Amino acid sequence: MASQGTKRSYEQMETDGERQNATEIRASVGKMIDGIGRFYIQMCTELKLSDYEGRLIQNSLTIERMVLSAFDERRNKYLEEHPSAGKDPKKTGGPIYKRVDRKWMRELVLYDKEEIRRIWRQANNGDDATAGLTHMMIWHSNLNDTTYQRTRALVRTGMDPRMCSLMQGSTLPRRSGAAGAAVKGVGTMVMELIRMIKRGINDRNFWRGENGRKTRSAYERMCNILKGKFQTAAQRAMMDQVRESRNPGNAEIEDLIFLARSALILRGSVAHKSCLPACVYGPAVASGYDFEKEGYSLVGIDPFKLLQNSQVYSLIRPNENPAHKSQLVWMACNSAAFEDLRVLSFIRGTKVSPRGKLSTRGVQIASNENMDAMESSTLELRSRYWAIRTRSGGNTNQQRASAGQISVQPAFSVQRNLPFDKPTIMAAFTGNTEGRTSDMRAEIIRMMEGAKPEEMSFQGRGVFELSDERAANPIVPSFDMSNEGSYFFGDNAEEYDN
């Protein structure tokens, strides 16, 4: 993207840094990872977990959730003011799984939030270390993106479920800051804005008074975040219109849905970061690795190297396929839920299948599930090659597409044709070009129609051997075009429920 120079890199967003050079960025990201790792080690000690239990991804998720809940100030305040039966607002906890007599047992633990905050700050040299908290939120978000298709949420806001490739980060909490905003897809931002506008339509006082002023500035800020994701002048001009509207209503909703559809071809720039579970960072720190000293990046080879040398386990339900569970977590670790499966298959070195073909449910185990038949197995999170994460949407291309997802959002900077089903997408653009945004709409449609099938995206960008740390010898991959490109292809993934 041309304006790259004016933006802070995501590592800076990730670490609240002012302008830093590459070495400083690597050190501050490393410091953040160190903090998460030290916190995780301490929690495993508190909970008396064995090494194996500490490497269980379900335990990692519970521990991450506990610290996120302990620092969720708004919710904590709300819980104190609106006490609900049987919930102690000062405590947080969740299921911890232990191996007892050759069987997995679930144990519900409860801790004072104050105590968890103390352990977290102690692991982070006394700081609140917001960057580390956001990092864990993005890992949870990436896992949700890989596990669930947001059909219901899309339909509720009037969008087409086939636009799911635009929904990265749709389950990120509001408090995820600049680093969170960077990884949100165009569809996620559109959905947040539509929800806001709908509230304004239904509630006369939404934009009024002292609160209304705050609401208005939040609305304009979200519009600017979305505008910054678009790469064409016409899309940005249309966002200006939406932002400046005196009284946002149905016309703005129409414009936003139009823009979301246009992003299936004229893709937005959305950041991709490899955020790993805390149970990967903990053992690495415990083994003596100093992330701050060595430096770390979320968008280069580092996460690949770390996963190459990590042992992570997962509980497996009786009829689940461990290899499929591994694929789910591998995609989440690489922030690749909406990437082209052919690119992923090449990088991973084994075939990556669409969601609907995987015999696996989510990673988390519900409290009512029976533990008797639970097994555990090693997650295979290694890769054959590594590639640089991208934040450009890439230019655009036609490809055989599917009944489910009709476009992709690249996660890796790797040369390819970008699949999208042009006739299906263009069919949504018939007729409606009147109104105050008509010239911009016409211009956007013209650009979409001009998108050429034979153009290559990320020209000359390749993948790298894991021994090639400096990215000196790019390998331009070859793809098996007979395979499906979309992950949520004609899909039956479970729906995400809060």
Rank of each mutant, 00 (worst) to 15 (best):
M447D: 00
E64L: 11
R436T: 02
V100S: 12
P474R: 15
M32K: 04
P410I: 00
R106M: 07
R355S: 08
A234H: 10
N202Y: 09
G249E: 06
R267E: 08
I25H: 01
V363W: 00
F71D: 13
K7S: 00
D112L: 13
G30E: 09
T171S: 03
T430W: 06
Y313S: 12
R342T: 06
D302Y: 05
S467N: 11
Y78Q: 02
G393V: 08
F71R: 13
T232F: 03
P423T: 13
C333S: 14
E443S: 08
V155W: 02
K198C: 06
L226F: 12
N321T: 01
A411E: 00
G450L: 13
S69V: 06
N432T: 11
F464L: 04
R204E: 06
N144W: 09
I347P: 02
A428E: 04
L110V: 10
Y281T: 09
E81C: 12
F71H: 09
P83T: 08
R55C: 12
S335C: 15
A85I: 11
R236K: 15
K77D: 00
A472R: 09
L61S: 13
D145L: 05
P453I: 03
M189C: 14
T23Y: 08
G187H: 02
R102P: 02
S486H: 02
Q327F: 08
L172A: 15
A451W: 13
E107H: 14
T433S: 09
I57R: 09
M1Y: 10
Q58R: 12
S335V: 03
R175L: 05
P283N: 06
E24W: 02
L344G: 09
K31H: 04
D290P: 15
L341P: 11
G94L: 08
E115I: 09
V109N: 00
M456T: 06
Y10E: 00
V242C: 14
T396S: 15
A471F: 00
E46P: 15
M222P: 00
Q149H: 05
G169I: 11
I33Y: 03
R118G: 09
S383M: 11
V343F: 02
M32F: 09
A403M: 00
E220D: 15
Y281F: 07
M426W: 00
A129K: 15
W139P: 07
K273C: 01
R441V: 04
R162Q: 05
M137N: 01
I444D: 04
P161D: 02
E254N: 09
F420R: 01
S176E: 05
T130C: 14
E455R: 12
L264K: 13
S3D: 00
S245A: 14
S486C: 06
S359V: 15
R416T: 10
H324W: 07
R436S: 05
E210M: 11
L381E: 07
D491S: 05
M163S: 07
T215I: 03
F458R: 00
A286W: 15
P423I: 05
F489K: 03
C44Y: 07
M426Q: 12
R461C: 04
D255F: 04
Q415N: 06
T424M: 11
N76K: 11
A401Q: 02
D439A: 00
R99K: 15
V155Y: 04
M196P: 04
D240H: 13
N205A: 13
W139E: 07
D160L: 02
E454Y: 11
I33H: 00
G349L: 10
G249C: 07
A442W: 00
K227Y: 09
Y496N: 08
L307P: 00
G180P: 01
R121N: 13
S245G: 15
E254T: 09
W386Q: 08
S402C: 07
K273T: 06
I63F: 09
A284H: 13
G180L: 03
R470C: 02
T147H: 11
Q308L: 15
D302F: 07
G295L: 04
R99S: 04
I253E: 11
Q409E: 02
N250F: 07
A153Y: 06
W386L: 12
I301D: 04
Y281E: 14
G268Q: 02
Q311M: 00
R261P: 03
L49M: 13
E11I: 10
A131K: 00
G177E: 12
N473K: 07
A263S: 13
V29G: 02
A27S: 11
A178N: 14
I197D: 12
D112P: 08
K273L: 03
V270P: 01
Q399H: 15
N76C: 12
R8K: 00
P89N: 05
R38E: 06
L341M: 11
D72I: 06
M105K: 10
E18S: 08
S84Y: 00
L56M: 13
Q4S: 14
E434T: 12
A27L: 12
E14H: 01
E292M: 12
A286L: 11
E369V: 08
A471I: 03
Q364C: 11
G126N: 12
E320K: 12
A182M: 08
R8Y: 00
R243M: 09
A260W: 10
F346M: 15
D468T: 15
K113V: 03
F489C: 05
G295E: 12
A178R: 11
E292F: 11
T350V: 10
E14N: 13
M191T: 06
N321R: 15
P95H: 12
N125I: 10
Y52G: 12
S457L: 15
I194C: 05
V414C: 15
E369D: 11
K273G: 00
V463G: 09
S392N: 08
Q122S: 07
Q235V: 02
R246D: 02
F346L: 15
D145S: 05
G93H: 08
I225P: 04
P453L: 10
M331N: 09
L328F: 07
S383K: 05
V329H: 01
R355E: 11
I406L: 09
V100Q: 12
V299F: 01
S60T: 14
M481F: 05
K113A: 01
T424P: 06
G349I: 03
V312C: 14
N498E: 04
R174I: 04
R221G: 05
G431F: 15
W104Y: 11
N247M: 03
T23I: 04
P419T: 04
V463Q: 00
D480P: 12
S84E: 01
V408L: 11
A218K: 07
T23Q: 14
L56C: 13
W120F: 13
T134A: 12
S287A: 02
M191G: 08
R118K: 14
A234G: 11
T23S: 15
L307W: 01
R204Y: 13
I33C: 14
N397L: 07
V100N: 11
A284C: 00
V408S: 12
R246M: 06
R470W: 06
A387H: 02
K422C: 13
M196F: 08
H324L: 01
R121E: 03
R400G: 09
K293G: 13
E254Q: 14
M371P: 06
L79R: 07
T92Y: 01
R348F: 04
N498S: 09
Q398K: 15
V299K: 08
K214P: 02
E81F: 13
I41E: 13
N498W: 01
D203H: 03
I365G: 08
V299L: 07
E454A: 14
I225F: 12
S353I: 13
K229V: 05
P83D: 00
P161I: 02
A131V: 07
M447E: 06
G37D: 11
K305W: 12
M32T: 10
F258C: 13
E46T: 12
R8A: 00
S402H: 15
R204W: 10
T433R: 14
K325C: 03
T45I: 05
L110T: 07
W104E: 03
I201K: 07
F338G: 12
H82Q: 15
I96C: 09
G37W: 12
V312L: 13
R348T: 12
I194K: 09
N432G: 03
F206E: 00
C275R: 05
K198S: 15
Q149C: 09
S245Y: 09
W330Q: 02
T146Q: 08
K77G: 13
D160I: 08
V476E: 14
G485Q: 04
M440A: 14
T6V: 00
E375G: 11
Y148M: 09
K351A: 09
N21L: 14
S486V: 00
E115P: 03
G158P: 04
I63T: 11
G485H: 02
E369Q: 06
M43Q: 06
L259F: 04
P453R: 15
R121W: 11
G490V: 02
Q231S: 10
G200L: 08
E465V: 00
S69H: 10
M1W: 12
